[in-house]
């Protein structure tokens, strides 16, 4: 991913900064400029909102055939996580045994390396999840 394209989203990837619709109160991650529920009523009413980083697994998979960038982590677990604020996101589930993973499992965000441009290139960091009771 080109440097500016990653850099632009650093706040979201490091800190889980999403947005909250001041019209209906719904919280979105990644942030949106328009609330899909309120549409025009939400225009210019979307405020930054920091997610706590806690949530639970909605569904998951263990990847055996990863993208080459993730080869060193293979096999690894990907999950869709619903945060306590109701936003949903996709992330890597680390330090977990696939046998223990199930829908509803409590998880927490932690920062890890997401990848790198190349061996001499930029390193990308961002959120992953680990079991709350590791």
């Amino acid at each position: 991913m080109p440097i500016p394209r990653f850099w632009r989203e650093i706040k979201q990837r490091y800190k889980g900064i999403g947005s909250r619709c001041e019209n209906c109160g719904k919280i979105y991650f990644p942030p949106r400029k328009i609330c899909p529920e309120c549409r025009r009523e939400s225009f210019q009413k979307m405020e930054e909102y920091e997610l706590e980083g806690k949530g639970e697994v909605v569904t998951y998979t263990k990847i055996n055939e990863p993208h080459p960038e993730f080869e060193m982590l293979s096999p690894y677990i990907m999950a869709i996580v619903e945060t306590e604020e109701g936003a949903r996101l996709t992330g890597h589930l680390v330090d977990a045994d696939i046998e223990d993973v199930e829908p509803g499992m409590k998880v927490e965000a932690t920062m890890r390396k997401l990848g790198e441009e190349s061996r001499d290139g930029l390193i990308y960091y961002g959120y992953k999840f680990w079991p709350l009771d590791r």
Binding site: L73, M111, K113, I123, Y125
Partner: peptide, 8 residues
């Protein structure tokens, strides 16, 4: 783990 370093 491969995704851990001094930053993380």
């Amino acid at each position: 783990s491969p995704d851990e370093d001094v930053v993380t």
